[in-house]
Amino acid sequence: MSGAMLDAQNHTKRLFSDKFRKRSVPLLFVLPALILLLAITIFPLLYELRLAFVSWELTVSTKATFVGLQNFKDILFHDARFWSSLKVTLILMIGGVSIELIIGTVLALLLNGLKRSRTFLLSLFLIPVLIAPVVAGFQFRMIYHDQYGPLNYIIGLLTLGHWHGFAWIADPHIALFAIMMTDVWQWTPFLMLIILAGLQAIPVELYEAAEVDGATEAQVFWRITTPMLIPVIIIGVLIRAMDSFKLFDIIYLLTGGGPGDTTETISYYTYLQGFKFFSLGYTAAMAFIQLIIITVIAQLFLRVQQRQPGNE
């Protein structure tokens, strides 16, 4: 066999194996993760979808009976507690995320002016974000304690003993606010971090050009900083909205949904239906309603993220 023929043969061989590689190897690489994800998300969800159409009260019987859309009808038209929990969730989401956004923006602007100490301070600020929400809940349970807690003591000092604060988590008018403040404490640094990243990504040339043109500080803030920050703020707010919608841990630790159902979020109510009242079909239907709401927010998030520079 001549050298040229051998070369040609080797070449085809390699091309063939390249083709083979291109198709199968990447798939093989993805396969373990794909199988895991399918097994632990898709199958349970399909199972749950089936559950949503049955009535299955574990406290009454171990049998499930098909009821069609009855669960969804009951939830949407006859369950005041569902709507109340949805309201609580939305108040916490909108109120909490708004406060977090305002404080977070102010802190980010202040931190942005620092030079050497910025990174270290940022790390300290981020500690609340990285500790378990349950532990955060316990910390605030001590802080909110009406008798021995430091918060009411400090309020007493500041008002010279005229006012001794609240029974923060036992007062039905205040408890929701106390929960919101715990969430604000834990998540404001997260929005601060994102906005700070956004601030640092604004090209210096823009500010230099504005200075040359003689723009005032207010003009620079509203005409340059704000519009440049909007995409980053949208991403941060959507991430927070999704997390806040699932709020459960600090409710479990601080109030258990009480007093009454004034702090009962939709996650907490679903948990009660499923794991305290054992209404399995009803819980499944409620879970699906939440999945739909979350999917809408998630779709918004994905659209915005796809438009980010660098992600095409």
Partner: peptide, 26 residues
């Protein structure tokens, strides 16, 4: 290798967003 394209990777991301309470029962 861009396996599955954007849709696949965004599907993966979306599984992260499930409310835990919704997956807990099944």
């Amino acid at each position: 290798y861009k396996v599955g394209g954007d849709n696949f990777s965004f599907w993966i991301l979306s599984t992260r967003m499930f409310p835990p309470v919704a997956t807990a029962l099944p």
